[in-house]
Design a binder for these strands. Structure first.
Lengths: 341, 341
DNA sequence: CTGAAAGCGCTTACAG
DNA sequence: CTGAAAGCGCTTACAG
């Protein structure tokens, strides 16, 4: 069946297409009598404006793209929820692209950025060396970019961002472990190349150094950001000649894996081994034992990122290029205790 | 700065815009010498075709919308992964809409369907009585719709779908519990109105009836599809005058909540209480104890749904309106045992 | 208050 | 092999 267009409606109502357009977009500017007639024609034909044509004409799509490592991570789900809540209210929809934990190469992501016609791009912990050509082009077409969750790489330094103080938070988490009496503290990090835990690892190392504690070779284990990766990393740590008494995990997903690996090894957490997470995803509270972790305000990050994106879209450029730091918070539950004597 | 358009490139290369267009879309049809010249002009200007204009002209967006209850559910994340894997390869992107566990009203979803210009819509367990007007319009504009994960409601009966046999799978899960010796089996369901566990509840009831077992008032508890909801539902079940010895949860998320509630009540699973899940999300295997559950092939569902969507888009209409049933599988781990004596 | 007309940036028969 | 021109479905000054 033929698609009904504005023309169909105009003919049926006996008016010009301009008038139909006005009835839809500025109804106050048309006489009631004609408005009613057009309304009826719309109903009768079941007309819905062609969104592509409208986007084309108006020059924007009401779509914002969000690039993130994985929609499967409950932490990002929280951020997404925050983004969606503000973006929805303003009539925008979300195009979601995963970088599969930053294993996509820059060209692929770059192509997405430049090619897809979104009104703006939110980069969530997906920052790695874009080609500057991409950035330059993105700049030229004035598509705003805003960064969430992680400190930006040098190339992205000029863009607005919102995130916690990852280095500081990781330092505090490590210090908490130290305050419980631990001196042998290991860290499970993401795969090399991922931005996701880079700053957290830096914070961990800083706290160890500040306390005059050694970090022997092998105490920073790659956990792949996954359950299985963390299980393997934990096993390696438990087999380490200098077995740590506490494991600080770069995110909760990996902490859940560490908990499982400890259990499988016949260890009691926290009696035999302490485990600290990062993020405070919803599964942290119901884990066994409930996970002590460093909480990030996921929804708040999403809301703030989205708000700034919308402001930038409206202004036609980023109005505020500063980094916005949101608060982190240590959540003490049961997975951390004093080291075994 | 002014956006560079096809015209800019044409002028710089000294050719018509038609030729530039051909260089991009059918390079074979232009002479090498001119092609090179145009290529250079493209590089020099940093030209990228305007996707909106192209979509407008071509009449499609290369966007498919997926409507689902929640991106936060790891099961749906799996389905999404499957969808993305096939859709990516064909150059499509995803617009993702959440119905917040089917609490959105039909009009809201309807508006999204009709208004947003996606090439097709995938409905994941988000099926409730659309107004027939919406459906009719969707039909008229020949936007394909395909259903995933749940049996379709009557209004959607004519649309293609792919899902497991939810009723049968739930019946088998219940029968497994019975085979372990349980006769007092409760069920935790979603909030009323959600399609997500409707068939599973039906399967549970069928199995109970087939075994001649009673389902006293209160044994089917609303768990809200969430951790917290399931915790409350489990508590209520444990306080029930006829306390069940096994709880079958409508999905794994709720089973995780049930596990936690049991632990909090000082119960050992499976010694004091058996818990059965549904889905086999990735957290099922690392739960404590590891969860016995009815697995759905999430990625496969996603792949099949996406494949059929792409076929339908290409054909301009759904080519195959049949329901495709994918296999389920009982995964026995440690959360189910014989009832306490 | 309403209409005629231009134009958004492409693609694609149609000529040549 | 290449160009001139139509047209995709809207919106929006500009007249009247």
């Amino acid at each position: 069946m033929k698609q009904v267009s504005i023309k169909t409606v105009a003919e049926l109502a006996g008016v010009s297409i301009a008038t139909v357009s006005r009835c839809i977009n500025e109804p106050d500017r048309v006489r009631e009598k004609t408005r009613v007639r057009v309304q009826e024609a719309i109903l009768q034909t079941g007309y819905e404006p062609n969104t592509i044509a409208r986007s084309f004409r108006r020059g924007h799509t009401n779509l914002v793209m969000v690039v993130l490592p994985s929609v499967g991570d409950p932490f990002f789900t929280g951020v997404l929820r925050g983004i969606r809540s503000v973006v929805d209210a303003e009539g925008y929809s979300l195009i979601i692209s995963e970088t599969q934990f930053n294993t996509m190469n820059a060209d692929e992501v770059g192509a997405m950025l430049v090619t897809r016609q979104a009104d703006g791009v939110i980069l969530l912990a997906s920052i790695f060396p874009f080609g500057s050509a991409v950035l330059e082009r993105a700049g030229r077409r004035a598509q705003p970019i805003v960064i969430g969750c992680e400190t930006i790489s040098a190339a992205l330094a000029g863009f607005p961002s919102v995130h916690i103080d990852n280095v500081g938070a990781a330092r505090e988490a490590t210090a908490y472990l130290q305050a419980q009496g631990h001196t042998r503290i290991a860290f499970i990090t993401a795969q090399a190349g991922s931005m996701l835990t880079r700053d957290r690892e830096a914070g961990y190392r800083a706290a160890m150094e500040a306390a005059g504690l050694a970090v022997p070779e092998g105490w920073v284990a790659e956990g792949d950001l996954s359950l299985d990766g963390a299980i393997r990393a934990t096993q390696a740590l438990l087999d380490h000649p200098e077995r740590p008494t506490a494991i600080f995990c770069g995110n909760d997903e990996m902490a859940l894996g560490a908990l499982h690996a400890a259990r499988a090894a016949g260890l009691d957490v926290p009696r035999d081994l302490s485990v600290m997470g990062f993020d405070d995803i919803r599964y942290a509270a119901t884990a066994s034992p409930p996970l002590t972790t460093m909480a990030q305000p996921a929804e708040l990050i999403g809301e703030r990122v989205a708000r700034r994106m919308l402001d930038a879209i409206e202004a036609g450029h980023a109005t505020n290029r500063e980094a916005e730091i949101v608060p982190h918070r240590l959540v003490v539950r049961d997975s951390v205790g004093p080291p075994p004597s």
